[in-house]
């Protein structure tokens, strides 16, 4: 583990709306395009803080667990790290390539074969086509799906589907890996293979963030655990 900071959240706030239709949002965005002003920082009707005043600092090579009840802000933190969304207030700085395994197989298409989906999902995770060609034997071997790789994934069982998605994800050459509730993939032998793979990534100085409800798993693989409650960090162990 080095002392280089790769993820830093400073006083980060994130506002979400409960309403389904955001009548004001488009108008606000357009006004901000023209005037260059930032969003409103106060809460309007039906809005709430998904994160309030969060400070996080993760060093290169660390494995951090995030735990907390549903809606406590775990996934929001991962979304902010992967640049899918942006903070309402505060500063986030990320160093390195992020592989967001937020939901396995988000880029899978049921009509495409396993192999075609490897290209699809791999490029979504930031691999180039050339890199992918080189890694495909490795990815296929890890997923244990050799016989089924030319079958459309709509014919896969849900376990096979997740195994393929996980294999693509952990073979991307990222610096930061985000896992959201994905450690319960496949049967027991595949699960222990996944945990081993995470340990390898850690040993190679990859930074990992894991979201899980399973405290046992978290304490086994993580250097530290952040416990979230109502969008704020309640406690941090081992950090």
């Amino acid at each position: 583990m080095s002392s280089e900071q790769v993820i830093s959240f400073r006083n980060v706030w994130k506002k979400y709306s409960k309403q389904q239709v955001l009548n004001n949002s488009l108008r606000e965005e357009l006004v901000s395009v023209i005037t260059g002003k930032k969003c409103r920082e106060e809460l309007a009707d039906g809005e709430f803080w998904a994160l309030s005043d969060v400070n996080i600092s993760v060093m290169k090579g660390q494995c951090i667990g995030l735990s907390g009840h549903n809606g406590s802000g775990k996934s929001t933190i991962l979304k902010l790290i992967s640049n899918v969304t942006y903070p309402t207030k505060g500063i986030i700085s990320i160093k390195g390539r992020v592989a967001p395994l937020i939901e396995l197989g988000a880029g899978m298409h049921p009509d495409l074969t396993g192999l075609e989906n490897i290209y699809m999902n791999g490029t979504i995770l930031g691999l180039s086509i050339r890199e992918l060609k080189r890694r495909i034997p490795e990815i296929v071997a890890f997923s244990e799906l050799d016989e089924f790789i030319d079958v459309p994934v709509k014919k896969y069982s849900s376990g096979m589907y997740l195994r393929l998605a996980f294999s693509i994800a952990v073979h991307s050459p990222a610096d930061i890996f985000l896992f959201d509730e994905v450690l319960t993939v496949g049967d027991e032998s595949f699960q222990s293979k996944c945990l081993e793979r995470i340990a390898t990534i850690s040993a190679d100085n990859g930074t990992i963030l894991v979201v899980s409800h399973d405290r046992m798993v978290l304490s086994r693989i993580c250097d530290g655990i952040l416990k979230l409650e109502h969008g704020a960090i309640k406690s941090s162990e081992g950090l």
């Binding site: 298409h109 009509d111 495409l112 075609e116 290209y119 490029t123 086509i129």
Partner: peptide, 19 residues
Amino acid sequence: KDLLLVFIWREFLIRYKQT
């Protein structure tokens, strides 16, 4: 650019698969 290429290729495959 690779992602764009793969997206185009994917749409092409999906469009004419099972036709």
